[in-house]
């Protein structure tokens, strides 16, 4: 177990064979671990390609891959939910990083009375369990007609962008040298121009990080939609899957001509739909994994 950190020095010069054997050991251990971690995803992939009865039987691999499951899952209901999800996700992915960095700029580069107290209050809101505010908000949303709309899922996030994101953006902006905005101010720029022209572009790494986490968080979120979306046509994809697929299995129905009339909910269709949920997040993760790790590191460097 030597060399357990990237920072580990080469204090002992092992023979080449010895090191190779050790590396081989690591590869085996990591490969086995990776396979174990992939079990749920592997289950999704194989089950999504099985027939109805087969998919509930605990088979390991599909006898005859049923690619049409993916076509069946891609029905009009699904498309509507997907569209709803997309709208909510896009609004949040754009607004949250913008709002959080806007707020963070106020805390890093503007001096104002009460900033310390306000920042402490913002951080303290992280401690408030969501459920405490959700119930009274539900009552309000009913009254003002926000139920079954995307407003409860977007407006609160737009105002401020969330305590964690504000904190992260502030951490990042602190590292930007203030000499630059002093120069800009001498050139006649006001605070807003400094923010939009200098700080926002320079904050790109942390903005990307926020976009990724917002994307996966909002796209996968089920609790918020579960509370505020009560009509089937307003469901997001996650909520639609939740409602449609947590019940008992129903078979796919066909009319006499062999056309699908009702899409069933056997595990094969459930998992094909699930794959549609997983794939966008997986793609985003694979493309941006470096930014993701860097972003986490930004947040972890000394509170």
């Amino acid at each position: 177990m030597r060399g357990h950190t990237s920072a580990a020095p080469r204090y002992k010069v092992n023979s080449k064979g010895k090191r190779m054997a050790k590396n081989f050991g690591f590869h085996v251990a990591l490969a086995v671990l990776s396979l174990i971690f992939l079990i749920p995803i592997f289950y999704m992939i194989t089950t999504s390609l099985m027939g109805e009865v087969e998919s509930g039987s605990g088979a390991f691999l599909p006898a005859d891959p049923q690619w049409q499951n993916y076509v069946l899952a891609f029905n009009s209901k699904f498309l509507n939910w997907f569209k709803n999800s997309l709208i909510v996700v896009v609004i949040n992915v754009v607004a949250i990083p913008l709002s959080a960095s806007f707020t963070a700029f106020g805390f890093t580069r503007c001096k104002f009375k009460g900033s310390g107290v306000l920042f402490a209050v913002i951080l303290a809101t992280m401690m408030v369990p969501g459920v405490v505010t959700q119930i009274p908000m539900y009552v309000i949303y009913v009254k003002i007609g926000w139920l079954n709309t995307i407003l409860p899922l977007t407006i609160p996030a737009i105002l401020g962008g969330g305590a964690g994101n504000i904190f992260l953006a502030r951490q990042f902006m602190r590292t930007i040298s203030p000499t630059m905005d002093e120069a800009a101010v001498i050139d006649g720029a006001n605070r807003f121009q400094v923010f939009f022209k200098i700080y926002l572009p320079l904050s790109a790494p942390v903005l990307i990080y926020m976009m990724i986490t917002t994307f996966t968080g909002v796209f996968n979120d089920v609790v918020g939609p579960l509370l505020y979306l009560r009509r089937e046509e307003s469901y997001t994809l996650a909520l639609g899957i939740y409602h449609q697929f947590l019940g008992s299995y129903t078979p796919t129905m066909y009319d006499p001509d062999g056309n699908v009339t009702v899409v069933g909910t056997f595990p094969n269709i459930r998992m094909a739909t699930g794959m549609y949920m997983l794939i966008p997040c997986a793609i985003v993760f694979f493309i941006f994994q470096k930014q993701l790790i860097d972003g986490i590191q930004m947040g972890s460097v000394k509170g």
Partner: peptide, 30 residues
């Protein structure tokens, strides 16, 4: 374990992290 310097460590890390991007609804069903 994932902090060792060997070839392909990034891929192992990625695979181990992958279940975290699964929606809780989907992973619950699975």
């Amino acid at each position: 374990l994932c902090n060792v310097k060997i070839k392909g460590i990034g891929i192992y890390r990625m695979l181990i992290y992958l279940p975290c991007v699964m929606s809780v609804v989907v992973s619950g069903i699975a």
